[in-house]
């Protein structure tokens, strides 16, 4: 009777309290179990501690590495690096402003579009789609997140860029050219705008999956209560679903934003890689991550490399504050408002 479950035998052994011998036998068995239990529990505790230590040390090591890597640029430019506009390896002049601007513009724009799409998909999957449709569409949306970004970049170059150029950028420029945002488009479609569109594809699955899960937590009784009052579906969604989950939606968007600012490869493939600040969404640009991906293998000077590490620091700080913001929002505004 010593199967795979032998460690559990101590619990299942019937102890007859009337018989002291049986009670003794029961106790010895329990003792043996306790020994196994103790060892396993101690091993588990060490394993968990080790894991936590590795993660924390790894993070510290990365921070240290990035700071040492950037030390040259830190000494040369100081904190003013963030505010310097020029990025010119030829003249050894470096600054993060252009790239920070490019990162924020593409990400904010991309997340703005992705938020609308993602929340709509989340609503559809959680509340509107028949169960069978949701069972097919849900995994499809999640698979969107599984596309390697380099592949998405290729799609961006060959499909999205020309499409955006001819069907979105050019018409928008013709119609609203007086707004600086919609300036003259380039010739091949490499632009901040195209990068935003690629980011949309990356961020939509994140926002859709997160908001779907959040909307599913709205109690059925609340939705039924709204519908029993003669509310239309939209009134129900607005009054009971969206109004009880605003913090969750915001957190989903912040996390999507975090994904967007860190994306390097796909953006570098479509953004045009030119370091200039331009209000024109349709002009070429560059982002922090994209520039590092693009130039890191071909530095022209030690300062160039150090400056890229510095960019990495800026990006890291940005990313960190995004995550902290998401945590702050979900902790302070994300209390379950229904008891």
């Amino acid at each position: 009777m010593s199967g795979w479950w032998w460690p559990l035998r101590g619990y299942s052994a019937r102890v007859d309290p009337a018989s002291s011998a049986a009670a003794l036998a029961g106790r010895t068995r329990l003792t043996r179990l306790n020994r196994v239990d103790r060892v396993a529990s101690r091993a588990l505790r060490w394993l968990a501690l080790l894991g936590a230590l590795i993660v924390s040390l790894g993070l510290l090591a990365i921070v240290y590495q990035v700071i040492t890597g950037a030390s040259l640029a830190l000494h040369r430019f100081g904190p003013g690096f963030v505010g310097r506009q020029q990025w010119s390896p030829a003249t050894n002049q470096f600054g993060a402003l252009t790239l920070l601007y490019g990162t924020l513009v593409t990400s904010v724009f991309g997340v703005a579009i992705a938020a609308v799409l993602g929340v709509a998909i989340g609503l559809f999957l959680s509340l509107m789609a028949p169960r069978r449709v949701a069972a097919v569409v849900g995994p499809l949306v999640e698979m969107l997140a599984a596309i390697p970004s380099v592949v998405l970049g290729l799609v961006g170059i060959y499909l999205i860029a020309p499409f955006a150029l001819h069907n979105i950028e050019a018409p928008l420029h013709r119609a609203f050219g007086f707004i600086p945002l919609f300036g003259p488009p380039g010739t091949v479609g490499n632009s901040d705008f195209t990068a935003s569109l690629v980011l949309v594809i990356m961020v939509v699955p994140i926002i859709a999956a997160l908001t779907r899960d959040i909307f599913l937590t709205v109690p059925r009784e609340l939705r039924d209560g709204a519908e029993a009052l003669g509310a239309t579906r939209w009134e129900m969604i607005r009054g009971v679903v969206l109004s009880t989950t605003p913090s969750g939606v915001v957190v989903a968007c912040i996390l999507g934003f975090g994904r967007a600012i860190g994306e390097a490869i796909a953006v570098t493939q479509v953004i045009g890689n030119i370091t200039q600040v331009s209000a024109n969404l349709f002009a070429r640009g560059d982002t922090l991550a994209s520039l590092i991906a693009n130039q890191f293998l071909t530095p022209v000077s030690a300062l160039h490399t150090a400056s890229m590490f510095y960019l990495g620091m800026v990006l890291f700080t940005l990313e960190l504050s995004t995550i902290l913001l998401a945590r702050y929002v979900s902790r302070n505004f994300g209390r379950r408002q229904w008891a």
Binding site: P219, E221, L222, D224, G225, A226, A228, L229, G230, G239, V240, T244, Q337, W338
Partner: peptide
């Protein structure tokens, strides 16, 4: 026209 009240009180938050 036909309102309903449920078993569990479900006031909106």
């Amino acid at each position: 026209r036909i309102g309903m009240v449920f078993q569990k009180p479900n006031p909106f938050p």
